[in-house]
């Protein structure tokens, strides 16, 4: 059993790398790339949400800013796409530090409000600033690979998003093993207590917030280069943010692979809905209902059901007492 679960990640990674060559058509490559993009974003979201327990419904702001930043650098300043992607992500991270300093001053529900406000505000600004962004008509970004046909482009971006996912997973894993990660988890459990133990909770939270924004911004930038056309209403929609939250919660926010698992379920389901039902609004209802059900009945996610069972609330006090007697004073 243990060996099986050890062997699982390399197996899944191998399958993921081979995926574009295993599927029969380019549509499935496209759907795969979209799923991996969401997985990368949900994993990045979980750098904040999973560790600190701060639920952000505003991460699409970073997605949108990353996308527009990259798009604008490429179209207005003729910057090579790789440079545009990195510079834009860096700028978004700096911006996130600023926002984070204000946002993490409040806890719980107030933080969620601030995050919602953030994405609404960005949406308004980008739509309003017509001369720069093209307003609600959107922004056209030239393809970085003009020689490839559409299917091959999907393939390239599938691997780019896969690399981003790997990076996000590695970061989560690294943080989870660090003292910094222990501090972040302590913030989730009891922030005042953590602070009293010397954890600079403000700085920790801002760092986690910015790190999480960085990867989401990279995903946004890649999205801009991939789709080639940006619609402010979509990229700054709260729906993208809620997808990240739903995926993470469904899979399990306390687990490295939780958001990935959630994305593997939610993103293909969304695509299926789109094909089966067409462009209706009922997919919103489906997303909403699943979120309600997960929050009510499975707030710890799917992976929590399979993870190691804890010792149970049954460690007898006597053993401690007896041991106390045995310890030389």
């Amino acid at each position: 059993m243990r060996i099986a679960s050890r062997g699982l990640p390399p197996l899944v990674a191998g399958l993921a790398i081979a995926y574009p060559f295993l599927v029969p058509n380019y549509y499935l490559v496209y759907a795969g790339a979209l799923t991996v993009m969401y997985a990368a974003m949900a994993t990045s979201w979980n750098l904040l949400g999973g560790f600190t327990g701060y639920v952000s419904l505003g991460h699409s702001a970073f997605f949108g800013l990353g996308a527009y930043g990259t798009g604008l650098l490429v179209t207005r300043m003729d910057v090579p796409w790789v440079v545009a992607l990195l510079v834009s992500a860096l700028l978004v991270t700096v911006f996130a530090v600023g926002v984070g300093i204000a946002a993490v001053r409040v806890r719980g529900a107030s933080f969620v409000i601030v995050s919602i406000a953030l994405v609404s505000m960005m949406n308004l600004i980008v739509q309003g600033w017509r001369s720069l962004t093209g307003g609600s008509t959107g922004l056209q970004v030239p393809s970085p690979f003009p020689d490839l046909h559409r299917g091959e482009t999907h393939m390239v971006f599938f691997y780019l998003f896969l690399a981003l996912l790997a990076l996000a997973l590695a970061s989560w894993w690294y943080v989870s093993r660090s003292r910094f990660g222990a501090g972040l988890r302590a913030i989730r459990e009891d922030e005042d207590k953590a602070e009293s133990l010397g954890v600079p909770t403000g700085a920790y939270k801002v760092t986690a917030f910015a790190l999480s924004a960085l990867f989401v911004a990279l995903a946004g930038g890649l999205y801009a280069l991939w789709f080639g056309s940006l619609d402010p209403i979509f990229v700054f929609s709260i729906l993208i943010a809620s997808s990240m939250v739903l995926m993470s919660l469904l899979g399990g926010v306390r687990h490295l692979f939780g958001p990935l698992l959630g994305a593997l379920i939610v993103a293909p389901a969304g695509e299926y809905f789109l094909i089966a039902l067409g462009e209706t609004q009922i997919h919103l209802t489906a997303t909403g209902l699943v979120l309600v059900l997960v929050v009510l009945f499975m707030p710890d996610g799917i992976l929590a059901r399979f993870s190691r069972r804890r010792a149970g609330p049954s460690i007898p006090d006597e053993t401690a007492e007896q041991r106390l007697q045995g310890v030389a004073p």
């Binding site: 639920v55 529900a109 979120l291």
Partner: peptide
Amino acid sequence: ENMAMMSVLLTFGIALTIEGLLGT
């Protein structure tokens, strides 16, 4: 113990549900 966060997500889900129904 996690009322604040979870209630936001719960009511957020309700909001999406209503919006989807209205749109349909």
